[in-house]
Write a protein that binds this DNA or RNA. Structure first.
Lengths: 342, 342
DNA sequence: CAATCTGTTGGTAGCGCTGTCAATATGAGT
DNA sequence: ACTCATATTGACAGCGCTACCAACAGATTG
């Protein structure tokens, strides 16, 4: 025969129901939808649960109801400040709700992403937040077959799987370059690290803006697949200056690189912005604090996380957003490091 | 009567077993402990599972086996770089294992921590990683009653709940101050933000070292409960200089503050280290890259996460570590910003 | 007064998997 | 040939909860 019966000291819903003098199913309803109970029973179940210290068994709940209250979140990096801001937005929103978060880290690999997506499937998530729009064909198929709301974050593009919230990295980079051009800079270099799809699109924005002004020159582009860091910013800047000594300004695909470039300028006694303008991307907190203050393209990362989480919750609960694709935009934060060229 | 029968197109273990020509329980064993099967059945089940695209139902597994393969992780902040390094260590280790991670964010609140701990209970985690040694009495009781391995990270102290990995913030700060004293600095200020328990202990280390040298002066201490930032470093430094204009060196409880202090010095044309020595804490990547390079107390954050994860896994699988409390130490990274005082 | 409706409650069965133990097959030892 | 140990497999029941439907009370309606 089967296993031994449950130890009698374990607190199950049955125990709560017994103490409250109701049927188990009524006790169950207290947790799912208290409004459906009469006031008397509601109070009785509540106090019984408290008295016994009842803790619901989530596995049983998930098995019986065929769904969970877990929102899966897939991001490419835990180290990058950009994602920690997004995550904070997600956690701040979801922590106040009934949903919990399952976070996984793709390490910028779409294959890792595919693997993790499969893993999520086994959990029957209530919703999914995934980074970016470059999934493998296989991942895309999985996402389309999953029966839950999905929000793609960080960028927007054609053909959302479901919902989407982000901004155009192409336009943002382009706007940054336009600013530098307006300030009078012409020989503008490009510093790129990691070169993930979004950075790639920032490069395209840079290239387009420079081409439009008939100023694009590939010798002024320095990129690497290495993960970004402040130190790397210094190294790349040194490479750039070596390749193109006549450079007047540098657009960095993120703020760490920009800070590294600033330090390298200080090391070489190149004055910023007199001899070299610097522009970053994301507008991390320190940019406004550096000396000189550093120009950057601000992205709304916290808001992205917050709104993505709100969108999933709403969609889970049946309230589809009027607008499934949300453009959060960006803004060029003009600071000392891109002062008008004399 | 009960609900409708399962749709026949759903792939359950039963379907796999049927296709493989074995009993469901044998198919189950294939996933739990393939070595227990004969080679023939093993191959048959494996190919059947692949053919049908079987995805196990984790909720059912958890309910039947009364355990999960989830490791709960409680950290106080997602934004702080310090924790992202620790997290990376944890994810790198656990991603390669059968265990998955449930991450929750206490926002530096021990009451939030208590709440989240209760939430974790409902999941019957296989292991737990919690930050620090300052839990509420209630949390402590919960932790002690939970039937799974627990690792406390970030610091070490007396009376571990189970296992512990970290270092002494007191000793680390003390060692930092000793270095400044050795370099000839006497009027050493203290900049502190957030003032969580670990920062508090760094302050105590500072105070003790200064007292030992008969140099402690409360006017040289500036702290705030505000969360840390680079900008805040500048503000606090300005406060410090206002309170104690004769200051020669400043110990910052983290690297963001140190960077902010450096920027503030640049703004005021105070040369570092000639007129002002600066020291940070944690040794984030940018410290070695700043101009001048910034002295800091290096902490082994990635290793802490990695080893904590390893310890939980080992303990879950019955191999208790020989040493339940691990001191990862620290090292003072001596750089330009604390050059010997002339 | 019967018919209908709404609000509240309970009975039953089953979600998909695995722990326990029994059954059977296989090989070794006497 | 027989016993005993070991490897492999299966039957059974049940993990704790909830979906589905039925039932019933009381209110409302014609």
């Amino acid at each position: 025969m089967g296993r031994k019966r449950t130890k009698p000291d374990k607190i199950r819903l049955t125990e709560v129901a017994k103490l409250a003098g109701v049927s188990p199913i009524t006790a169950s309803r207290f947790f799912r939808n208290p409004a459906a109970l009469s006031v008397g029973k509601r109070v009785r179940v509540e106090s019984a649960a408290k008295e016994l210290g009842y803790v619901p068994n989530l596995a049983a709940r998930a098995l019986a109801s065929q769904r969970t209250e877990v929102v899966g979140v897939l991001i490419p990096s835990l180290t990058n400040n950009v994602f920690s801001d997004v995550l904070r937005g997600i956690y701040d929103t979801l922590d106040g709700s009934r949903y919990s978060i399952q976070l996984a880290n793709t390490r910028y690999s779409i294959f890792q992403e595919e693997k993790l997506l499969r893993l999520f499937l086994a959990q029957k998530p209530a919703g999914l937040i995934v980074t970016g729009i470059n999934q493998t064909a296989e991942s895309r198929t999985i996402l389309e077959s999953v029966d839950c709301p999905i929000v793609q974050i960080m960028e927007i593009g054609p053909a959302p799987v479901d919902m989407m919230i982000g901004f155009s990295h192409y336009d943002a980079a382009r706007a940054g370059i336009s600013h530098l051009l307006e300030q009078g800079y012409r020989r503008i270099g490009f510093l790129g690290a990691r070169m993930d799809p979004r950075v790639q699109r920032r490069f395209e924005g840079y290239q387009a803006a420079m081409n439009d002004a008939a100023l694009f020159d590939p010798r002024r582009v320095v990129t690497t697949s290495t993960p970004t860091s402040v130190t790397l910013g210094g190294t790349l800047f040194a490479d750039l200056v070596a390749k193109a000594p006549d450079i007047e300004a540098v657009f960095c695909v993120n703020d760490d690189l920009a800070l590294g470039a600033l330090f390298e300028c200080q090391r070489r006694h190149i004055s910023v912005p007199e001899q070299m303008a610097i522009m970053g991307f994301n507008d991390l907190e320190f940019m406004a604090s550096a000396v000189p203050t550093l120009t950057s393209v601000r992205t709304n990362r916290y808001e992205m996380g917050r709104d993505a989480a709100t969108m999933v919750i709403e969609a889970i609960e049946g309230r589809r957003p009027a607008q499934p694709v949300v453009d959060l935009g960006f803004s060029v934060m003009k600071r000392q490091s891109s002062a008008p060229r004399n």
